[in-house]
Amino acid sequence: MLPTHGRYDHHDLPGRARYLWPGGGSGDGRGGTGLAVYLGVNLEHFAFGEGLGAELAPGPASGVGPYPDVLNYAWRDYGNRVGAWRLLAVLDELRLPCTVLLNSAMYHHAPALVAAHRARGDEIAGHGRTNSERQSAMPEAEERRMIAEATEAIRRHEGKAPTGWLSPWIAESRATPDLLAEAGYRYTLNWCNDDQPVWMRTAHGRLLAIPYPQEVNDIPAIVARKDSASQFAEMIVDDLEERLEQVAGDGVPQVMGIALHPYVIGQPYRLRHLRRALRHLASRRDALWLTTAAAIDAHARTLPSGAVPGAA
């Protein structure tokens, strides 16, 4: 027996319960759809002269060169100053909702950008204080304090606490699910182990793990694998169409996430390809549920016992 996390049980894909998401059309007169799709827009802020950060070119975060890391800091900041606004225009054009994965430092750094998403009615989910830090490296008391600070900032500015969380760098300590449930979170996006929501055990009750993509995600695709903008757009379309085929008829329902970072996808030549992919997505809205992660969580909790796999 190998060491395990103990958070959920293994469930093979065949034989799972069939259910429908709201919206779209199943094609058999029942209404509903087998595919829920959400966009995860990461709004992140980074410390200057220290800390972690994605790198356009090797810098201090990868052990190359001293701080200040002007090249990579400025590349990331482009997303908040320019790229995110271009992405917002595309979302408005196509009437697409999104889940904003928010570093709470953005309330100080770029409040107008957060306000623009608020005005659209987008979901604001917790994403730590800043992506310059990694919560898996924190002692438990410090991690609990970081979660509380990020949560309270969102509650103060949005008028309600977030229900979902994505850790900076998707990094967890062994205590993270417990701390999230303790803080009142209903779902996490950290675990990419399935194409359906999965119940996780915590010391404070169940926590829903909603699929967050590590493939249809512009950082692994474009920054890590060096895929082109065209390839990333094709990835979105192919992922969508393959899933629609799989959920047709009596197929097991699925969740498709698309993860976007404005400093990557907001570059003009990449945005042009993304717009093409999202236009295709919007054209298929009658066959799927275009929604937010919070709405997926809310609907999953209405399903009959046993429909959602994971923890007993």
Rank of each mutant, 00 (worst) to 15 (best):
P97F: 01
A116T: 01
R18N: 13
T291I: 08
I296R: 11
G257V: 08
L240H: 08
A295K: 15
R276P: 00
V216W: 05
P3N: 11
W191E: 12
V223N: 14
L260Y: 08
A112G: 03
N42A: 10
A57S: 11
V70A: 14
H261N: 12
A137M: 09
P168T: 08
V247H: 08
A84V: 04
I265G: 02
L271Q: 07
E152I: 00
H299T: 12
L52P: 00
L87A: 01
G65N: 05
A116D: 01
R18L: 15
T130K: 04
L240W: 05
R243T: 10
G257F: 10
S104W: 02
P220E: 05
L208V: 12
G49S: 09
P58F: 02
L102D: 06
A259N: 15
V64D: 13
G59T: 03
A105S: 14
L113Y: 03
Y8S: 15
H11L: 10
R279M: 09
S26K: 04
K226S: 11
Y78G: 05
A300K: 10
A300H: 08
V114Q: 02
G34W: 04
R285V: 01
A287R: 14
H5D: 13
G59D: 13
G24E: 02
L35E: 04
I219V: 14
A221P: 05
K226W: 03
A294P: 02
N72I: 02
I170M: 12
A248Y: 07
I124Y: 11
N193V: 12
R301W: 01
P177M: 05
G184H: 09
N193P: 00
L278I: 01
W75N: 13
P68Y: 06
F48A: 10
E242A: 13
I170S: 07
K160V: 06
Y38S: 10
P22A: 09
M1N: 12
Y107H: 13
D286I: 02
P168E: 08
E140M: 06
M1D: 13
I258V: 15
Y107F: 15
S173L: 01
S167D: 09
R81A: 14
Y185H: 15
K160W: 10
S167L: 01
A150N: 07
E241S: 06
P3D: 12
P168K: 02
A148M: 00
M138K: 07
S167T: 12
R201D: 05
E172A: 09
W191I: 12
Y263M: 13
A294G: 15
A17P: 10
A294Y: 03
L96S: 09
